[in-house]
Structure formats: C-alpha cells, structure tokens
C-alpha cells in the first residue's frame, strides 16, 4: 500500500498533492452540508416559495422533493459522479412535466440551491478568506456541473416526450387501406401541413404500387379547414397518383371547405369529387366494374 503511494508520488507528485487537498476540501464541504442539512433545506424551500417557483406543487411536495434533491446533490458532490443524480432528475422530470413545470423553474431551483449552499460556506469561512477561496474552488465546478446535469436531464426528458408524441401522431395520421381489390381508401383526419402532406403522398404512392391499385378514394371529412396550400398539396397528390395509373376520387368536402375553395379561387376542376365516402366507394366500384346487389334481388332474378 505504502509502496504504491510512493510510486504515484514519484510519478506526478504535484497533482497527487493537489488531489489530496482537493478531496480533503470536498470532504469537509460535504461534512458541513450534511451537518446543517435540515436548516439549509428549509432555507432552500423558503427561497423557492419566495421566488414563486414550482407553483404547480404544494408546499409539502416541494419540501419532500427538496429533501431528496438535496441528498442527491450532496452525494454527487461527494462522489463526483452524476449518474444517480441524472437518473433522479430524469425521474423527477417524468413526474413534474405533466404537471406543467417549466424549464426555467427547474433551472431556477437548482441555481437557488447552489446559492444557498455557497452562502452557508461564506458564513462559515468568512474569517479565513484564503481558505474560503479554496473551498469555493472545489465547490463551484462541481456545483456547476450538477446544475448542468439536472437542466440537461430535464430538457432531454422533455424532448423525448415531444418526439414520442410526434411519432405517435405521425403513425396514426395516414392509414392507406384496401377495401376491394385494386381500390384503396385514404381517410385524412386533422390538419394537413406540408410535411404531413408529403408523407401522405409518399405512403399513398407506395400503397398504389404494392396493392396495384386502380382507384383511390381520398376522404377529407375529417379535415376541418383548407387553404390554398392544402388544396395544392391535394392536387399534387392526385396528379402523382395519376402518373402511376390510378384514378383519385376526393370525397367529404364540407360546405365550408367548398365555399372557401371557390372563394379563394383554387382550381379543382381536375379533381374528381363525390359528396361522401359512400358515394365515393360506389363511384370507384363503378370505375372498377363492380356492381353490388343485395342477395335477395339476385335470388329473385335467378
């Protein structure tokens, strides 16, 4: 053991000495924070309320979270590793994001904790300024990287939630369904933005190819509003489908949309429109040469 230490000292003496005093400082610091934890936590919670942060949470909740964050914080200071804190921050974010806690609030409370702790260090070591300086040298970088870690975890969690929801919406949004051989329907629901229109067209074209479709019925009953951009996307979709040899029938234009389109003067003469989805499918069946007759009628004929 002693031999090992000797070897290290021989190799890089200055750094080892620095490390020792460094870790000694951190040890003292952590001991101080542990000793006064109750008081510091209270002070922190008080300042959080004062600054009107975390208004979505009750006083008790704030105090409970403050206690756990404080312990994690001191542990991270002591060990110099942030994995546990990171995991906790992620967990915390998962819990508080749905309750409407904002990014600035989270960053605000971590910075407040940093300030509260720094003040307590000032108060303790105010008589020995050079030593205080050294303590702060040890404290500040660690505290800053902790603040960083928590903020980044929060933002990452938030981004993850957003991407997840976006993907869910994207996947939900454009089913291409086959209702008869060579007949596809594409119900569009919700808002059509350029990105979605593009994706929708791509999916439809792939669908036409894989199902060898001759007729496509695009139902826009679920589209609430339409402007010239959306109408142009629709026209492009129709033309692209035609290039693949498929006829497109558009159904379900609401009275409002019909009025808007005529008022803004979008040229939809190239489009084949039918009132509702039922009519559209009937028209498509006619184009494909199907005829649906009730079984009873067929029996009577025979």
């Amino acid at each position: 053991m002693a031999k090992k230490d000797d070897l290290q000292v021989q190799k890089i003496p200055s750094q080892v000495v620095a490390d020792e005093s460094w870790s000694e400082l951190l040890r003292q610091l952590v001991a101080h924070l542990r000793q006064n934890s109750a008081q510091l936590r209270q002070e922190w919670a008080r300042r959080i309320t004062q600054a009107r942060l975390l208004t979505a949470m009750t006083q008790d909740e704030i105090f409970a979270e403050a206690t756990t964050i404080y312990d994690n914080y001191v542990d991270a200071l002591e060990s110099g590793t942030f994995e546990a804190l990171q995991a906790y921050a992620r967990q915390l974010s998962e819990r508080i994001i749905p309750r409407g806690v904002e990014t600035d609030e989270v960053i605000g409370i971590v910075l407040l904790l940093r300030d509260v702790l720094a003040r307590s260090l000032f108060a303790k070591y105010q008589h020995d300024f050079p030593f205080l300086n050294r303590v702060l040298d040890a404290y500040e970088p660690a505290a800053n990287s902790i603040a960083n870690t928590v903020a980044v975890s929060f933002v990452k969690e938030r981004e993850r939630t957003i991407t997840q929801q976006q993907e869910a919406i994207r996947e939900l949004s454009t089913p291409v369904l086959q209702v008869r051989e060579r007949l596809l329907i594409l119900p569009i629901i919700g808002l059509l933005d350029p990105q979605r229109a593009r994706q929708l067209t791509e999916q439809l074209l792939q669908g036409i190819r894989t199902n060898r479709a001759k007729v496509v019925v695009i139902d826009i009953t679920g589209v609430a509003a339409m402007d010239s951009n959306v109408a142009n996307h629709l026209v492009q979709t129709v033309e692209a489908s035609r290039l693949l040899g498929a006829t497109v029938i558009v159904t379900g234009l609401s009275p409002e949309i019909a009025q808007t389109l005529v008022t803004i003067g979008v040229d939809l003469t190239k489009m084949n429109t039918v009132g509702d989805l039922q009519g559209g499918i009937e028209e498509a069946e006619r184009l494909l040469g199907y005829k649906v007759i009730p079984v009873s009628e067929q029996l009577r004929k025979e």
């Binding site: 593009r198 067209t201 791509e202 074209l205 792939q206 036409i208 190819r209 060898r212 001759k214 492009q236 979709t237 033309e239 692209a240 489908s241 035609r242 290039l243 693949l244 040899g245 498929a246």
Partner: peptide, 27 residues
C-alpha cells in the same frame, strides 16, 4: 413511373396532362 419519380415530378410541376399512364407494362 416510380412513386418517387411521380412525387418529384408533381412537385416540379411536370405533369403528363392528357396522356394515359399505367402502373406497369401489364396494366
């Protein structure tokens, strides 16, 4: 006409108006 080509063509405003198109040779 490939789906990607059809998509690009309509975006560039290149249409084959009044000309018959089909999915493949058989069609």
């Amino acid at each position: 006409i490939q789906p990607e080509v059809a998509f690009a063509m309509t975006h560039l405003g290149l249409t084959l108006e009044g000309i018959s198109t089909a999915l493949d040779l058989e069609e």
